[in-house]
Amino acid sequence: MSGKNYQFKVVLLGEGCVGKTSLMLRYVQDKFNEEHLSTIQAAFLKKKIRIGSNSVELAIWDTAGQERYHALGPIYYRASNGAFLVYDITDIDSFERIKSWVKELKTSLGNNCILCIVGNKSDLEKNRNVPIKEAEEYAKSVGAKHYSTSAKLNHGVNELFLDISKRMAEKAESSQSTESNNAQNGSSSTKRNVIQVVDDSETNQTDKKTGCC
């Protein structure tokens, strides 16, 4: 009866006001009864789902979307299994910013992280400024999947989270063997050293330089 028990960390990235928090709240709030949602905050939420015989616990990390906190991204998305890159379909700038996130994620997490590019606010289709074709092609070019959601109307939100969970579970399944090898080699110890704050601030400085130009 008992399948595998996965714990995944998913991070929400994207510019301010694209609806990261609403997406998360919509997903977590809708399925759980009101009683369970005793949270006073919407920055970190957990949700348990079942995929086949496996149970998956999603820990969803929201990030501050303001431009000035862009440099703090690495601290949040470190060691995450998946990332949502949310943009507003009516705002071309928010889409452009996605690309910088993708680059960073690729360099720091490699292929360990499942990327989902999410065009939110699909209810405002008439004001669309980001061509869906362009977005989908871009997603394909970086090995990510593209989704259209509307947190307001609850379109595609559940599918989005379910899909990423499935993909993360598959990834974990396939990488488990290699992971155990790594553990034997003791490489996990080197992983730990990344945690230091000093390193983060250093990376931040480099990040900022790219951000300014």
Binding site: F44, Y69, R78, N204
Partner: peptide, 21 residues
């Protein structure tokens, strides 16, 4: 790396990094 404590801990790290810069 996981859980709510981790989130807030990371936030504090982020804050320190931000203040530094």
């Amino acid at each position: 790396l996981q859980g709510e404590h981790a989130y807030h801990f990371c936030s504090l790290n982020a804050v320190i990094a931000h203040i530094e810069n």
